[in-house]
Design a protein around this nucleic acid. Sequence first.
DNA 1: GGTATTGGCTGACGCTACGTCAGCCGCAAG
DNA 2: CTTGCGGCTGACGTAGCGTCAGCCAATACC
Lengths: 253, 253
Amino acid sequence: MRTWSTAEVARMTGVTARTLRHYDAIGLLEPAATGHGGIRHYGEPELLRLQQILLLKRLGLGLDVVAEILDGGLAEVEALKRHADQLHVERRRLDLLSATVDATIRQLEGGQEMAPETWFDGLDAGKQAQYEAEARSRWGDAVVDAGEEAIRAMTPEERTRIPAIFADLHRRLAELREGGAGADNAGVQAIVGEHYRFIERLWGTEPTAEAYKGLGALYTEDPAFATTFDEVAMGLARYLREAMDAYAEANLD
Amino acid sequence: MRTWSTAEVARMTGVTARTLRHYDAIGLLEPAATGHGGIRHYGEPELLRLQQILLLKRLGLGLDVVAEILDGGLAEVEALKRHADQLHVERRRLDLLSATVDATIRQLEGGQEMAPETWFDGLDAGKQAQYEAEARSRWGDAVVDAGEEAIRAMTPEERTRIPAIFADLHRRLAELREGGAGADNAGVQAIVGEHYRFIERLWGTEPTAEAYKGLGALYTEDPAFATTFDEVAMGLARYLREAMDAYAEANLD
DNA sequence: GGTATTGGCTGACGCTACGTCAGCCGCAAG
DNA sequence: CTTGCGGCTGACGTAGCGTCAGCCAATACC
């Protein structure tokens, strides 16, 4: 049975010699024999293993996972399923990101020569649709549908008052924060309680602890939300989030 | 005008103190003043800049690009458009990858407890649809449609002979390669010429140099194609690809 | 006055999967 | 004897920080 040198294997499989040495170094693919100055010799079993490595790698698996699979530590189907899940998550993330970037571009092109200082105001158009998508994927269709139904059920007058109610809550929160109150302060928690009950009305259902904390996370993670709060007071989004977390821990399950 | 320490800025904006030091280190965001043991003090302009940094970063831009934009070296809309293009490319890559992984999982679940050695044979089902998608994105719908039309126009007998014709070409190529012929060897190029004319019949149109070389690339880059060739002779896909490249360079434009 | 706590600082390593030198050795052809 | 081809072993660089380790200063408590 003949053997092949690194350069030969490289030519046959398309990987570089450096890659082969790397795989050797991390123990993923060791040559059948090394001799005379450390020269590597690969046999057919090694070529086969290399093929398998390249196949799994092409599927996007990390080399550590590849090693685990090939050395029998991991069932290949299970590993691929987990990987597929990760891919789906990553793809959704990219979708959202892509939509956000496109929306931002439209904004910047709509207004002319916006100063950087005003970028934060620029995320209004498309916002609704985007957050609806975000919300559906976060909490499921049922919650969002219920929320839309609840809002439709309001009188127009009630509906127009929604932003003002939020603004009032935010303003009162900012005041307390100015006064040095922590997120678990009783007054702060009272306001968060109001907030919670208002969200409940908007959603048409009682948010679970998880959903409520998820909303808090959205407030800080999403640029448009975060900047809406920051217009009231710098860092308010994070403050509210912490208060919501505390409220959820203490009162929800 | 008051200033804020790293920890204060961290609490307000949600980044870590380490991140702020990092931004300082790479010159992306320098504190308004440092004094007394190197302690950093940030003012309002720095907070504003940080907000802008975080916004652009959340859109997926690299810190180097963010710096260029904020320092006026790059028009923000142009940068975002380029970024959007990259996102689209990346998303398509993920789509293809995701489809490939899903197909592989179905294969592995269809057959039971396949030994790793047989994985290479396992990518047949779904293969057609998958490569069709790949082909459409590589060469456009027109080419693929023409190809399907050309194949439909064949008699059933002709159609069943397609695999055998390919197999014969591959076998003859492998023989020449065994004999030490390079990719630009006349005999090899003659076989590739046959291959080219056969592809032309299949596609219903003359492949351009780019398309033909793209097909060669597909042969080596796609695991199922690559292993089809490797069943004939190890490394044959790459050999054929090089020969196709040489053929395209010499005879096509 | 000693000490535990809190914050802040500066290195420096780690992570992914190699690419890319730099520097050295051995073998064969001219 | 030189040149060239292969092969080898380090070691640094990559993006964006996380995570110690080790040290300093101010504050609070006993």
